[in-house]
């Protein structure tokens, strides 16, 4: 993709740049009307797109089958409309029925699905030693992960106060968690900076300083 050559393309990238600068005028300068303008523009736009996609998908997923003879699809459609009673104080209870189906199915699926990957597999992966002939570092990692996981889980034993025999294991567990959060933070910085670099690149592209 090169630099736009059509009027709508050129107008488009400059509009995009202007909107970006309106938003960044808040952190780079201070709160102002242009920032508010762009903020409300984005909210209005996002809501409209969500509403359009909602209508479009409802037609494909529910209305079309209903028209094709699946009369019972009237039930989920009615349940979908019942969700909107959540906005009315006196009739909010009506929305509890569709919520019951949403929450019930999510919890049921979550409960049945979580045991193997999140409990059993994690325990198996923790207690599986390195293969024969593994280097010393692999054994160190195995011990670190094994003991570290036990200590970190102990930190979440909130039924007991963390003192007496639990004092040092839970403190070590907290350190293990801090190492994990530190690595997570390092990856978070990467994510945020990659996103921001995309914007910096876009600014330079629109100004013609780097190619599109």
């Amino acid at each position: 993709m090169g630099y736009p050559t059509t009027i709508d393309g050129i107008l488009g990238i400059w509009t995009a740049l202007a909107l970006m600068l309106f938003v960044y005028s808040y952190p780079l300068f201070k709160e102002n009307q242009l920032f508010r303008f762009a903020e409300h523009f984005f909210i209005g736009l996002s809501l409209a797109i969500a509403a359009i996609i909602s209508i479009q998908t409802t037609i494909r997923l529910a209305i079309t089958p209903l028209m094709a003879g699946k009369i019972y699809y009237i039930i989920p459609i009615l349940l979908g409309f019942m969700m909107y009673f959540i906005l009315h104080r006196d009739y909010r209870w009506i929305s509890r029925y569709p919520i019951a189906i949403l929450v019930g199915s999510s919890i049921g699926l979550g409960m049945r699905g979580t045991i193997i990957p999140n409990i059993l597999s994690q325990i198996i992966a923790t207690i599986t030693p390195p293969k024969a002939g593994a280097v010393a570092l692999s054994w160190f990692n195995f011990v670190y992960i094994g003991i570290g996981t036990i200590l970190a889980v102990m930190y979440f034993l909130l039924t007991f106060e963390h003192r007496g025999p639990l004092l040092y294991p839970t403190r070590l567990g907290r350190w293990i968690i801090m190492i994990g959060l530190g690595a997570y933070y390092g990856n978070t910085v990467l994510f945020r900076m990659a996103m921001l670099s995309g914007r910096a690149q876009f600014l330079l592209q629109v100004l013609g300083l780097v190619p599109f």
Partner: peptide
């Protein structure tokens, strides 16, 4: 279907 319709909520 309920989730889809609730998107516009």
């Amino acid at each position: 279907i309920i989730s889809t319709m609730a998107l516009a909520l």
